[in-house]
């Protein structure tokens, strides 16, 4: 951490691709959750001739299109973890063998349980956020991508790459297609619960912690509110 004696110090944390991914991903998840829910529980039946409508078709199209954005975005995000700055790796590789890391997780927990008076300062994510994002977002995303492509491969057919790479082993792994649907559906709720907590914590930390959060994900610059150490 820099030791400049300025009242407010700023660090450039989130590079452009990370921020772009964050907001595109947020949009994709929104579309995926809404359309996904409507695939499981469709809207009321339409009357008239079948050729006059393509409602379910459009809903499924939006789901698949947003799904591809989600997948390609995540591939890009993984790529950036390799070529980007050190913060780009954080959510993929929690330093679980570091004692300091766990003591900071503990401190962060105490802060959230209103025991610690003050949180510590972090340039990137705080340690608890790293664990939270690694487990719920990174693994949640992997799970949704794998089960999602497995379900897509069923429609694409036996000779599609989606089928041979995903459906062929994921469907038997879960038992049958209906089970993959159920777990994919539950996965949506895991991601939505992640979003609820993520948004709440982002606002809370933005107000109560010692650094900026929301503006950081827009501008990329983390500004600290005080220049005390740690």
């Amino acid at each position: 951490m820099s030791t400049k004696t300025k009242n407010e110090q700023s660090v450039y944390v989130y590079e452009v691709p990370i921020r772009l991914w964050h907001w595109i991903n947020a949009l994709a998840i929104t579309v995926l959750a809404i359309t996904g829910y409507l695939i499981g529980s469709p809207l009321s039946s339409l009357s008239g001739e079948a050729y006059e409508h393509f409602l379910m078709g459009y809903i499924r199209f939006a789901h698949f299109a947003a799904g591809y954005v989600f997948v390609i975005g995540f591939i890009g995000r993984i790529y950036w973890a390799f070529v980007g700055n050190s913060h780009a790796k954080q959510i993929f590789l929690p330093p679980i063998f570091s004692g300091k890391f766990w003591s900071e997780v503990w401190h962060e927990m105490k802060w959230y349980l209103f025991i610690a008076k003050e949180p510590k300062k972090y340039v990137g994510h705080n340690p608890m956020a790293i664990i939270f994002m690694h487990v719920m977002l990174v693994w949640g995303t992997f799970f949704m991508i794998f089960t999602g492509l497995a379900l897509y491969g069923e429609g694409a057919g036996f000779d599609s790459w989606q089928y041979s790479w995903f459906s062929s082993w994921i469907i038997p792994l879960f038992g049958q297609s209906q089970d993959v649907h159920t777990f994919h559906h539950l996965g949506m709720w895991v991601i939505l619960i992640f979003v609820m907590m993520h948004v709440y914590v982002a606002f809370r930390e933005d107000i109560m912690s010692r650094q900026t959060l929301i503006s950081t994900m827009i501008s990329g610059w983390r500004t600290f509110k005080d220049n005390r150490k740690d």
Binding site: S45, A50, Y51, F54
Partner: peptide, 11 residues
């Protein structure tokens, strides 16, 4: 299937 894509269901 055409009715499925159209969004026409038995309720």
């Amino acid at each position: 299937r055409g009715h499925f894509d159209a969004g026409q269901f038995v309720e």
